[in-house]
Write a protein that binds this DNA or RNA. Structure first.
Length: 607
RNA sequence: GUCCCCGUAGCUCAAUUGGAUAGAGCGCUAGCCUCCGGAGCUAGAGGUUACAGGUUCGACUCCUGUCGGGGAUACCA
């Protein structure tokens, strides 16, 4: 149980004689807005006053009188219109810190009834290289999977690859017309990427790309001949796709041949990002199940014919009902997604299924979930964990000068390169100032650049509010000061170096932690912040917001900074105080490391 | 046309879901290396929360309207 839950329970007990349902009022116990008000504050007296027909401050008095302070609370103060300000007893905090240090869960108990989650994230179209647009789903999903697992839930991660769509028609067409046998033999992955881009560029005059340009302006940029050719190529691609779906032997064999290459392309990225999946069941996996899904929908009277297509009407006069079969007989992604939900429910019996997919698909998921519910899949909680788009400086979807989206691989390369540059630069500055700098081996240096560069990219994204769009900016994404991964990684390395410097072994602090003394305000503030870990993770998990973790980390770093400035550790006045402060240091490092790990970001001991 | 999201410091973003004097980073200004790592720390300037009403003890947050931006709108997934 985290600090907030403990206090809310106390208030729940105190309120139970006053109102019929104390829960919503107990929920008004919150972290203090400002440290000067205390550690936590209860805002329930004001709203309760109206219900009870009394003065808010009188109600606050009554609540305080009924409150069992136990050994954890100082006598509360009533302030302003009726705020109840709470301050935890310092000796109680000290005991909790000591407890927290023991074991590797940092005081976070596994959840009482664990739930089973299926998390669907990343899910790229494998026919084309991954670009920045895929980053958010991939790392938000990965982070949520790590977080829910750490909290004790059963998590099944599933990468629902787009391996059966029109993009494969483009690859098939391109392979048949433009392949370079020699390139295919030496580097098939690169050759497939080249083929895809070539076909995409050919079709461009008639196909809306990632640039979001409207068809009118787009058409004006091309000659009639180019448009006609684009139209022809697009039709041929569609026919290739149709042949693949119809079981054409040649296209089937080619698909079998392409898949490992496509997988290799994306797996390289996943490996580098340290993102892993329990399952990778793409659309092709569900293809054989689709006719059965349709029959079932029709048998239940859910799917009806309309303009030659098969739709599922959900609302009166809905101009855009979900479609499960096109007039040409092809299935849609709604059909495929229904099969997917059914398969997952039957196979894994999850309590909840999370779709980490961008906000533009909100309508699709709203409809999909409604159809699934009516179809009988109503026991599982289906949730669209949506996120905002990544925009360019012009507030339009991100793109490079050339017009295509920035490829993920290049972004990561650039991040690592910049990390290396910054490293050398800061080290030279320190040198000229006559300061000691750690001498890293070439291997260590490479590892540091990788860890810092990739960490920067992930943290920049995860620290954003999940639901808002955000403007992509190289400098921001690769920034290494302020609230960034680098700052946290650096803070971690610095704490470690204290142990190094003092010739201290951290291990005893985790098995036989010494008593903590929190007489200095900065010690107390740091301890309180450390103990709020469980609270932060709870928020991050219930709201599916990794930014709650980065926010907590930033607060922790500031608390630590205050402590570090004001409280000598190795030169503490007494051996006991030194032990206590080393305990706080070690805990800080461990909490930073754990949180970064939950974000999929690594740490190094020296940098 | 209809529906959804958004508008907060010069820029990029927060604000514990209705709480006390709206906070950070970057940038700018001024300080801090005989003191455990300066990728750091301390302080300062910077705001009519797009606009106008309303709801109440209290509104960036909820409601109505206006302006502005973005997105989704059966046969791409």
């Amino acid at each position: 149980m985290n600090l907030l839950q403990i206090l809310q329970r106390k208030f729940h007990d105190a309120l139970s004689g006053l109102v019929d349902d104390p829960a919503p009022y107990a929920g008004l116990v919150k972290p203090a807005q400002d440290p000067k008000f205390g550690d936590y504050q209860a805002n329930c007296a004001m709203s309760l006053a109206k219900v009870l027909g009394k003065q808010p401050r009188v109600v606050a008095q009554e609540i305080v009188q009924r409150l069992d302070l136990g050994d954890l609370l100082e006598p509360p103060e009533i302030a302003g219109p009726g705020f109840i300000n709470l301050r935890l007893r310092t000796d109680w905090l000290a005991a909790r810190v000591q407890e927290m240090a023991r074991g590797d869960r940092l005081g976070v108990e596994p959840v009482k009834p664990p739930r089973t989650y299926v998390i669907d994230y990343s899910s790229p179209n494998v026919a084309k290289p991954m670009h920045v647009g895929h980053l958010r789903s991939t790392i938000i999903g990965d982070s949520l999977a790590r977080l829910l697992r750490f909290l004790g839930h059963h998590v099944i991660s599933d990468n629902h690859l787009g391996d059966w769509g029109t993009q494969f028609g483009m690859l098939l067409y391109g392979y048949k017309h433009f392949r370079d046998e020699e390139a295919l033999n030496t580097d098939p992955v690169r050759e497939m990427a080249r083929i895809y881009i070539k076909v995409r560029d050919l079709i461009k005059p008639v196909e809306a790309g990632e640039d979001g340009e409207d068809s009118g302006t787009r058409l004006k940029r091309y000659t009639d001949a180019e448009v006609a050719e684009a139209s022809r190529v697009r039709d041929e691609c569609r026919q290739e796709t149709a042949r693949l779906h119809a079981g054409d032997a040649v296209n089937g064999r080619l698909w079998e041949m392409f898949m490992p290459w496509c997988r290799q392309e994306i797996d390289t990225i996943y490996e580098r990002l340290d993102v892993h999946f329990d399952h990778t069941l793409g659309e092709s996996f569900y293809n054989p199940m689709l006719p059965g899904v349709l029959r079932s929908l029709q048998a239940k009277g859910l799917a009806v014919e309309s303009k030659g297509a098969l739709i599922v009407p959900l609302r009166e006069n809905d101009p855009t009902p979900p479609m499960v079969r096109k007039k040409d007989g092809a299935f849609t992604y709604t059909t495929s997604d229904l099969a997917t939900i059914q398969y997952r429910v039957e196979t894994w019996r999850p309590d909840a299924m999370l779709y980490v997919v961008d906000a533009r698909q909100a309508l699709h998921f709203k409809n999909l979930f409604e159809v699934a519910r009516r179809w009988g899949l109503d026991k599982v909680a289906l949730e669209h964990v949506s996120f905002g788009s990544v925009l360019g400086p012009d507030r339009k979807p991100i793109k490079t000068r050339e017009g295509g989206a920035i490829e993920l691989g290049s972004l990561l390369d650039e991040a690592v390169k910049r990390a290396a540059e910054t490293y050398h630069q800061t080290r030279e500055e320190r040198r000229t100032q006559g300061k000691d700098v750690p001498e890293l081996s070439a291997a260590e240096l490479k590892a540091v650049s990788e860890v810092v560069g990739l960490g920067a990219v992930k943290y920049a994204d995860l620290s954003q509010n999940r639901t808002s769009d955000y403007v992509f900016d190289w400098d921001k994404m690769l920034a290494m000061d302020g609230n960034t991964a680098t700052y946290m990684q650096y803070a971690y390395a610095r704490v470690r170096s204290i142990f190094q410097e003092g010739g201290e072994d951290a291990r005893p602090f985790r098995t036989q932690p010494p008593a903590a003394t929190l007489n200095e305000p900065h010690e107390r503030a740091l301890a309180l912040q450390l103990l709020r870990l469980g609270e932060a993770l709870e928020v991050a998990a219930t709201e599916y917001k990794p930014s709650a973790i980065t926010g907590y980390l930033w607060d922790l770093a500031k608390s630590y900074s205050g402590f570090y400035q004001n409280c000598p550790v190795l030169k503490a006045e007494t051996p006991e105080l030194r032990q206590s402060r080393l305990l706080l240091c070690d805990l800080t490092a461990r909490v930073i490391q754990r949180n970064l790990q939950l974000l999929g970001i690594r740490t190094v001991e020296r940098m």
